[in-house]
């Protein structure tokens, strides 16, 4: 499997955040690039889901699920705003 994009994490992110998130805007904490979540690079082949910045490949977010518990690491994201909202 090659990399996917943020569309592939739509269900998982909606499960965590409670709203549609593929149209949200994320800002990378490393390079400052802002992108729609749908346009980020996503890797699902490991034990968790990894989202990377489409410009600098910095890890934006990692989600690992065990049973019904999610561990969400968002240290790579400076801001995350659902569509229609500003940071």
């Amino acid at each position: 499997m090659d990399d996917l994009d943020g569309n592939a994490m739509g269900g998982l992110m909606q499960e965590i955040f409670g709203v549609e998130m593929t149209t949200a805007i994320e800002t990378c904490a490393h390079c400052g690039n802002a992108a729609v979540v749908a346009e980020t690079a996503v890797y699902l082949r490991g034990p968790g889901a990894v989202m990377r910045c489409p410009t600098c490949t910095n890890i934006l977010m990692v989600v690992v699920r065990r049973q019904d518990m999610h561990c969400v690491d968002m240290q790579g994201i400076a801001s995350l705003s659902p569509a229609g909202q500003t940071a």
């Binding site: 569309n7 739509g10 269900g11 549609e20 593929t22 729609v36 569509a83």
Partner: peptide, 9 residues
């Protein structure tokens, strides 16, 4: 199943 999912594409 669950959905629908996504709002971008």
């Amino acid at each position: 199943i669950r959905g629908p999912v996504g709002g971008y594409f």
